[in-house]
């Protein structure tokens, strides 16, 4: 078994007498993109802040490439690149000056590497401008560049897609995949499920400061099926289609984009025949994974709520 890039053991954080997170056990392997998913205030950022040394660990420990963040902080941080919350860089300096400055903090990161990461994040045109002139998306790119400088084995990104346009998000996805293929581990937090689903190999769900579940994306998808499928149906007359589905005792609802219907897979042909039989023009029938994943997420975090 390969050495874990990141391992947390019974991690706990208290602020004053208030418990923020507890019993966080994570194992992140080299070569995977791991999604850290949870609603706002669930403890994602608190956990990340402990991993990168911003917050003291109340209990438990964190190991990065086997080095304890508590006792071998400097060795542990050598393998970490991160952006926590908004990337804050030196606004009165140019992007390039920022990167060259950070490069000096690591052995063996020279100017060529700086130029290389600038190309990786596509910031060539603005890199000589002062950071205070950057848009949020550009700051995200620069933040990513400084996190990549020293080729970290563990890349930690808190809500990395904030401020990025769809093209930027897609680029980022590709970049994460490339990094993982080169043997790094990428740890991404988000509260947006569909993003996670497209980006990640595994997803850990946190709620109320506790880990609820860790699953591969496939597992989550199959969990969400629950023996049924969710379909988005678009027809010439959606209202009539809804009536037709109700007639078949299927759970359906009319939405602006079409009719959403949930049913067992083996009843789908029956639905198609019914629609065609009713003389309706069927333009599309799409399976809705995202929507169903949301249901799983709500179920998982909801269950936790009842138990807690």
């Amino acid at each position: 078994m390969p050495e874990m890039v990141l391992r947390t053991e019974n991690l706990r954080k208290d602020i004053g007498s208030k418990n923020i997170v507890s019993d966080i056990n994570l194992d992140i392997r080299p070569g995977e993109v791991f999604g850290f998913l949870g609603p706002n205030g669930a403890g994602k950022t608190t956990t990340i802040r402990m991993i990168v040394g911003l917050s003291k660990i109340t209990q438990g420990d964190i190991f990065i490439s086997g080095n304890s963040v508590r006792s071998r902080f400097r060795e542990a941080m050598r393998d970490v690149g991160c952006i926590v919350e908004n990337p804050e860089l030196y606004r009165y300096m140019s992007g390039l000056d920022n990167l060259r400055m950070f490069a000096r903090l690591y052995k063996g990161v020279g100017r060529e590497r700086v130029d290389e990461v600038v190309r990786i994040v596509h910031l060539e045109d603005a890199i000589r401008d002062k950071v205070k002139t950057y848009s949020l998306g550009m700051k995200q790119r620069l933040g990513l560049a400084q996190a990549l400088l020293h080729r970290p084995r563990l890349l930690i990104l808190d809500e990395p897609t904030n401020g990025l346009d769809p093209a930027g998000i897609r680029e980022m996805r590709t970049l994460f995949r490339d990094l993982a293929d080169q043997g790094a581990a990428v740890f991404v937090s988000s509260h947006i499920l569909s993003e996670m689903q497209m980006m990640c190999d595994r997803v850990g769900i946190i709620n109320h400061g506790r880990m609820v579940a860790v699953h591969t994306v496939e597992e989550l998808t199959s969990l969400s099926d629950g023996g049924g499928v969710q379909l988005l149906v678009r027809t010439g007359d959606n209202a009539a289609a809804l009536q037709c589905m109700n007639g078949l005792q299927m759970k359906a609802s009319l939405d602006s984009d079409g009719v959403h219907v949930a049913t067992a897979p083996e009843r789908v042909p029956e639905l198609v025949r019914a629609l065609v039989g009713a003389g309706l023009d069927v333009y599309a029938m799409d399976t809705q994974k995202t929507r169903s994943l949301e249901d799983v997420f709500m179920k998982l975090t909801g269950e936790e709520k009842q138990n807690g």
Binding site: G53, L54, R74, M77, R78, V80, E88, L89, L105, Y106
Partner: peptide
């Protein structure tokens, strides 16, 4: 200015 957090997670 918030830049301190960018300096903490370094090998120092």
């Amino acid at each position: 200015e918030g830049t301190m957090k960018t300096m903490i997670s370094r090998p120092f």
